[in-house]
């Protein structure tokens, strides 16, 4: 028997196995603000079989685009995306850390040319996935503080 702490959704997306503490950042990534028009539930600090604790975000009537998925992967590499159709999990996949990250994060190096008003997207190469370490293609500096620098 299924036990739900929140109302089930008919259609939408469940972002499960979010690294504990990252739910609010996930909300920011998917653009949930005060003026939200569909049901969004947020579960924080939920017991997890895979990790001890996790966060979950459920959004009604919404699927995520590739940029959003990339950002979620960066702050929570084990998150699973469950696409719900007619109350059932129709699709499930684990987010994937891309090899190259374009435009979704600013360079943490204040001296980097990409932090000036230049008409260019930031670009990072993923040097390591555990822990996630990115190298700025422009200034060559390593970045590990991902969440703070997402835009």
């Amino acid at each position: 028997m299924k036990e739900f702490k929140v109302t089930p959704i008919r259609n939408g997306t469940v972002i499960d196995h979010i690294s504990v503490g990252m739910a609010l950042k996930v909300l920011r990534i998917v653009g949930v603000k005060d003026d939200v028009t569909s049901t969004v539930s947020v579960l924080m600090h939920v017991p997890s079989k895979k990790a001890v604790w996790k966060d979950i975000v459920k959004i009604e009537d919404r699927e995520l685009d590739p940029k959003e998925l990339d950002k979620i992967a960066l702050i929570s590499p084990n998150a699973t995306i469950n696409i719900i159709r007619d109350y059932n999990v129709a699709e499930k996949f684990v987010v994937e850390v891309p090899k190259v990250i374009k435009g979704i994060m600013k360079c943490p190096n204040p001296g980097c040319i990409t932090n000036k008003d230049e008409p260019v997207e930031t670009e990072f190469v993923v040097e390591s996935k555990k822990p996630i370490t990115l190298r700025c293609v422009y200034c060559d500096r390593m970045a590990t503080e991902i969440a703070e620098n997402l835009r």
């Binding site: 040319i113 700025c136 293609v137 422009y138 200034c139």
Partner: peptide, 13 residues
């Protein structure tokens, strides 16, 4: 020659 880190890569772009 430029004071900003990564300026040359940007120029090459």
């Amino acid at each position: 020659r430029h004071p900003q880190d990564g300026a040359a890569r940007l120029a090459a772009h």
